[in-house]
Design a protein around this nucleic acid. Structure first.
Length: 218
DNA sequence: TAACCGATTCACT
DNA sequence: GTGAATCGGTTAT
């Protein structure tokens, strides 16, 4: 809302807890991408929690620790960026303490101003017909913000780098709903866990779930 | 060192 | 709504 919030970092506690706690609390916050052409600021509107070694949907399930997943085991606040389907990148916010693999997938963002939208459109190689074409989807937002594997491990809790997160709108004041995560049928009993969160009625959200229910903040 | 497959997207009907 | 595209990471020889 007010521009006075610009440049305030998120409370450090947010990065220290579980991904499940952090996922809804990242909604409304501002993701800042610093490029050669200037900063792009956008609001996080959709997230998913991938938490702990027991989550069969997580890359770190059963403690799987490889070159790819290594960042998930670092301290909260790091960026975990990986390639999916051989052509798209996905951006995650690592949370929790060292050795505890927790991450929140950023699934959709909304440009803060028309100028931000303009920069993002220029990075997309398709015609943007609807808002969600621009950055509604994990692969799309990485394209729109030119996020790639070079950003893996970047500190999101420290401003001034290529990518970081700032305080935006208090998520408690938003209409947040929750529902099961997207495209993880292999996660068996974890596939149905309502660990996707988004701002209801926001046009940048990737997929609306008619079964989504209002989030009860704990 | 080879086979398998994905936290997706886009063009097309 | 449906199906093809596409290649690095993981796992198993």
């Amino acid at each position: 809302m007010s521009s006075t919030n610009r440049s305030l970092p998120l409370p450090p506690e947010l990065y220290k807890g579980t991904a499940l706690e952090a996922a809804p609390r990242l909604l409304g916050q501002h993701l800042v991408r610093r490029t050669e052409e200037g900063d792009i600021v956008c609001r996080i509107v959709e997230t998913e929690s991938y938490g702990g070694i027991e989550d069969k949907g997580s890359h770190a399930y059963n403690g799987r620790r490889t070159a790819r997943t290594e960042v998930m085991f670092s301290s909260g606040g790091a960026a975990y960026v990986y390639l999916i389907y051989g052509m798209y990148h996905c951006l995650n916010v690592v949370t929790g303490s060292v050795g505890d693999p927790q991450a929140v997938l950023i699934r959709a963002v909304e440009p803060l101003t028309p100028a931000d939208a303009e920069r993002m459109v220029s990075f997309r190689s398709i015609t943007v017909k609807r808002p969600s074409d621009l950055s509604g989807g994990p692969g799309k937002l990485c394209r729109a913000l030119q996020v790639n594997k070079s950003h893996n491990g970047t500190r999101l809790d420290v401003s001034g780098g290529p990518l970081w997160i700032e305080q935006g709108t208090d998520p408690a004041s938003l209409d947040v709903v929750q529902c099961p995560r997207i495209n993880i049928p292999y996660a068996e009993e974890y596939a149905g866990r309502p660990w996707r969160f988004y701002i209801r009625d926001n046009p940048y959200v990737s997929v609306k779930d008619p079964q989504a229910v209002p989030l009860i903040w704990l």
